[in-house]
Design a binder for these strands. Sequence first.
DNA 1: TGTTTATCATAAGAAATAACTATCAATCCG
DNA 2: CGGATTGATAGTTATTTCTTATGATAAACA
Lengths: 294, 294
Amino acid sequence: MINITLKQLRYFEALARHRHFGRAAEACAISQPALSMQIKEMEDVLGAALFERSARQIRLTQFGEVAAERARDILRAADELGDLARASRERLVGRLRVGVIPTIAPYLLPKVMTDLSARYPELEIHVRETVTPKLIQELSDGQLDTAIVALPVSEGTLAETPLFHENFVLVRSAKEANAPLPNADSLREMRLLLLEEGHCFRDQALSFCNMPSGPPREVLDASSLSTLVQMVSAGMGVTLIPEMAVPVETRSASVSISRFEAPEPARTVGMVWRKTSPLANQLTEIADVVRQCA
Amino acid sequence: MINITLKQLRYFEALARHRHFGRAAEACAISQPALSMQIKEMEDVLGAALFERSARQIRLTQFGEVAAERARDILRAADELGDLARASRERLVGRLRVGVIPTIAPYLLPKVMTDLSARYPELEIHVRETVTPKLIQELSDGQLDTAIVALPVSEGTLAETPLFHENFVLVRSAKEANAPLPNADSLREMRLLLLEEGHCFRDQALSFCNMPSGPPREVLDASSLSTLVQMVSAGMGVTLIPEMAVPVETRSASVSISRFEAPEPARTVGMVWRKTSPLANQLTEIADVVRQCA
DNA sequence: TGTTTATCATAAGAAATAACTATCAATCCG
DNA sequence: CGGATTGATAGTTATTTCTTATGATAAACA
């Protein structure tokens, strides 16, 4: 199946406008025979005459009139595709799907969302909050554009950039405020409350205590830092939370916060995306904005 | 300025649908590298990535999604142009601008319009009624598609086909009904009422009497056959009218109609159109329909 | 862990398409 | 009738697009 081409439509449109092969050809920056051939080809393909050629002038046929209108529509649509491409290339627009782990989302997102919206008004931000393995899976599947997680991710297909480094602090009930600071080993002897399995923060905390991360423990596992703090406040044990969570989580709980001595437990939070992502350039820009927020 | 092509849009659409270069290429009946190259070319021209290629699968970029939608619109519009061409080629549709001389129009058109509309329901018929020279001019200018006039027209650029032959009859007042039939020469002595200048029928009548057609005559010239007959009915003279006009024009006038003896005055009515007209085929068909009516 | 498989990109030559120059044919005009 | 204008045609060249063969990379497999 042979078909018409946009080039033919362009030539046709010019001829319909000029009603003169020579001038239309000049307008298209080609020779008159080239125009003649393409018009003829187009008429052959369509199986209908577009122009009526009489001795000294040419006229659009009735079909030609209709076709000229359609041709203009098509050419305009094609041009718009170019405009659209330019727009999408010049600035970050459209939808950005961001995944964030639950031990970061509530503390970082409010400011990040505000700043990003201010900087990229045309950007529609979707947030997905879940544990790292799921985020990585969804990222790889193309359901997310980027994710904010604890580094390293060590996934060959993903690019990662660090955002900030944060320490973990000890949360004890208010009445233990002046008790001696436990070290990593003594923590193991205490009733350490942790997040349920799957959260990387659980593993990071356990690793600080040199405890195996795998098997479930006898203690109740919480589903959020907020719950953990409330449990501590109720005297059920102690826990660790990232520094960033302190202002939010201790507002409505009577607990004491203590920093560890060096080497303090800590984690690096970073942003990851597919190495192949077409948004790679914009994502490094966004990482900068997030860094400002932290 | 290099630009995208419809071919690229077709390939792109296929790839967007299959999300697989090999299968999309197969669907387009080309080799996989050919598809790769055209997609690459298209991305280069647009200056934006359409697909994100990762190891084992490809995905549309956000821009690609939008572009795919547009591409489908454009391709559909291009296909419709083909459909439109086919429709316009297969049957007579749209507008047909017909010119008819005033000494034919009122008698022939009612039936012709009815029959044509029945046969070509999608045909919109415009009628222009004026004298032959104006019709020929407008036909040549492309303001008319065809004209029904008295033959011959003898215009090199026009094609003509005869429709019917009609005699002229003598119209006298009712009380002259039994008077002897004048011949061409005796007509010259009578008060012969005629149409105003410009009407071919005037010239044809004069030519029958062997009188010069040019100079204005002393008698009142009428603007329609109807007026002529009414004048005859009022006793102002005699006239000739084409046979076809008899039923209509003598309905409300007390006149007598007489046929001449051979050689009877007559004219050939025919249809003309530009030799270059794209409607030429359809016009011969229409001439057949008109012939049926006469 | 190395091997196979799947998949898209690249390269080089061949085929197809579109362009140009030169020329023709028709017609209008003085 | 002769020159000028205009679109069509022919032959050749230039460009584009395709094909085949091959490469590179990562996933799947054993």
